[in-house]
């Protein structure tokens, strides 16, 4: 197990280094415009730009600059944001926290809901309940977030006037403002996880050991809870872990639409404003989250299914 952990962590670091190299090449080598102009503005003289490049090491070799940049990154110095005129770390951490709150409530609602409905559906494949849940799941997953965001806004903000239209939390945290963005994410993601759970449950329910358990005379409830569920939840577990990665990109649309000050909106702003340091930090955070959640999923998988072994 220790070897497995070390291997996974080593692979994680390797992936991050490769991604950081690609990021650096794309963003720091003038491929997307002159960094000096971005920082000093269009009216800066050539002398000013040259001085800035010199002061900030942009006249050094790319390899040297990359090594320094990586060193700074590893020690927590994420640079300065052009748009926010301050350290990237100070901007990034509160935004990550906001997205974590949104993500928490999305998952807190979506996981129990989709697992319960998925299991109920899979228990009686082909039943009216199964068909109803499947159709509903397909329907919600087919509607992109930007469309459901418009629909829910029209209904709950402009029509019924029950909910606030934006989620900027400008006067402090207000749970009411979190409802619409969380609702859009839950509705979109619920169908996918529920259908995966249903498929897994349906497969387990047709397996030999379940049939044996039923024929052995075990109560149906016991068969489901003790035998079927544990095996049926292995596949959804992987899917749910993948949803953490999806959430990081999925929140971009939702946070933009509802003006929620989270990581997704920050990533978009960094990109739209050519804020290289911020963009690099956001991209690296996304990579860290993606790789870490996958590693956790792999490790968790071995606990859920002891038959799976890694060599």
């Amino acid at each position: 197990m220790v070897l497995l952990l070390l291997k996974r962590i080593g692979f994680m670091i390797f992936t991050m280094i490769i991604v950081s190299m690609i990021l650096f090449m794309l963003l720091e080598t003038g491929l997307t415009g002159d960094p000096a102009t971005r920082v000093l503005g269009n009216f800066a003289s050539d002398e000013q730009k040259e001085l800035w490049r010199d002061q900030h090491g942009y006249n050094q070799m790319v390899v040297v600059r990359y090594a320094k940049w990586l060193g700074n990154f590893a020690t927590g110095d994420l640079g300065t944001s052009i748009r926010y005129k301050g350290p990237v770390k100070e901007v990034l951490l509160p935004r990550l926290w906001n997205t974590a709150i949104l993500g928490f409530w999305t998952f807190a609602i979506m996981i129990p809901l989709s697992l319960t409905l998925g299991v109920l559906s899979g228990m009686k494949e082909g039943s009216l309940l199964d068909r109803g849940i499947s159709v509903f799941g397909i329907l919600t997953t087919s509607v992109p977030e930007f469309a459901s965001a418009v629909f829910f806004s029209a209904l709950f903000v402009f029509g019924l006037k029950w909910l606030p239209g934006t989620s900027s939390m400008a006067s402090g945290f207000e749970f009411k403002q979190l409802i619409l963005p969380a609702m859009v994410l839950v509705v979109y993601d619920f169908g996918y996880v529920a259908r995966m759970t249903r498929a897994s449950m349906a497969e387990v329910m047709t397996s030999q050991y379940i049939r044996s358990a039923v024929l052995k005379g075990l109560p149906y409830r016991q068969v489901i809870i003790r035998h079927a569920l544990r095996n049926a939840l292995i596949a959804p577990f992987t899917v749910i872990m993948l949803q953490i990665n999806w959430l990081l990109s999925g929140v971009i649309v939702v946070e933009f639409f509802f003006a929620y000050k989270g990581f997704g909106a920050l990533l978009l702003e960094a990109s739209l404003n050519n804020d290289i340091a911020l963009l690099e930090a956001c991209a690296m955070v996304a990579v860290v989250v993606a790789v870490s959640s996958q590693t956790l999923a792999d490790i968790g998988y071995t606990f859920l299914n002891p038959r799976i072994r890694f060599s």
Binding site: V150, V157, F158, P164, G165, T166, S168, A170, F256, F257
Partner: peptide
Amino acid sequence: IRFIDLGQDAGAYLAAIASKQ
């Protein structure tokens, strides 16, 4: 006076004023 940034989406501003935010 509180200037509240609602991003770059015109729809967000309309939704905010419609819901009296």
